[in-house]
């Protein structure tokens, strides 16, 4: 249905930056629509510009051309309409868990009683209410990312942007986090744009997987995935899952040949 406004609409987005005297095209010209309430992953080879792409959508770095619209409204600066989660923990080490989650609400001038209620709700949602008085430095990597998710959800953004949020975690924690994320996402019903280099992660989590090719980044293929939700880790074992996974692997591998030597 075309008459519905997409949650995120990217129109002919391009990024060129100068390195010394050279001009390097990081992103060629990408157009993409992310429908309301969908979980969309972007996969691509390392250093293909997918993180840059997400940072531009987040408004953190300037774009060279094109437009980004969130629910129809054009944006080019960071704002609480897009909740961003980073690969490395962006929790403030000088604030405890509770105050970290409350930070955005406090900045926006929300009154304390209401703020506390929201923080409690989200800390319970990510199952870390018991750790509210701890410092981030006292938590494991997986816990930190769950707190980050709670912090982002707390200020109720229109869309979630996630930049390899589980990239620094070990394989087992990663799988647990994926199941957690699916549960939390289903409860919050937000539109998500999720960047990863892990094909399994993308296929397991997403309604739509967008495959980027490397340097400069362009959209290579868009794949819809319609496994029943909630998905369990067993879905990895199905033939259908493996077929999709292998297909994406092939797509990326054609790429690797050209961009691997420069891999970041």
């Amino acid at each position: 249905m075309e008459n519905k406004t997409p949650a995120i609409e990217i129109e002919k987005l391009g990024k060129v930056y100068t390195r010394g005297k050279e001009e390097v095209t990081a992103i060629q010209e990408i157009s993409l629509k992310i429908p309301e309430g969908k979980f969309v992953s972007i996969v691509g080879p390392s250093g293909c510009g997918k993180s840059t792409f997400l940072h531009i959508v987040g408004g953190f770095i300037p774009k060279s051309s094109g437009k980004v619209r969130i629910r129809g409204k054009e944006v080019d600066k960071p704002g609480p309409d897009r909740g961003m989660m980073f690969q490395e923990s962006a929790l403030f080490p000088w604030k405890n868990v509770f105050d970290n989650v409350a930070w955005g609400l406090e900045i926006q001038g929300m009154e304390k009683s209401k703020r506390d209620e929201i923080v409690e709700h989200y800390l319970k949602l990510v199952n870390l209410w018991d750790f509210r008085k701890n410092l981030p430095s006292e938590l494991s990597g997986g816990m930190k990312q769950r707190i980050s998710l709670a912090r982002v959800l707390a200020f109720n953004p229109d869309v979630l942007l996630m930049d390899e949020p589980f990239g620094a975690l070990d394989a087992q924690t990663r799988e647990k986090m994926q199941v957690e994320l699916q549960r939390i996402w289903q409860e919050s019903n937000k539109s998500v744009m999720f960047v990863t280099h892990d094909i399994d992660e993308a296929v397991f989590l997403s309604d739509i997987v967008v495959v980027f090719s490397g340097r400069p980044a362009v959209v290579k293929e868009i794949i819809e995935i319609d496994f029943q939700r909630p998905r369990t880790l067993d879905v990895h074992k199905t033939q259908e899952f493996m077929d999709i996974r292998n297909h994406i692997w092939d797509l990326l591998h054609q790429e690797q040949g050209t961009s691997d030597e420069e891999g970041m």
Partner: peptide, 14 residues
């Protein structure tokens, strides 16, 4: 100061 701290704050509307 880590860039993501500033970005996270900007993201929350600071």
């Amino acid at each position: 100061v880590k860039q993501v701290f500033v970005w996270a704050a900007e993201n929350m509307g600071a």
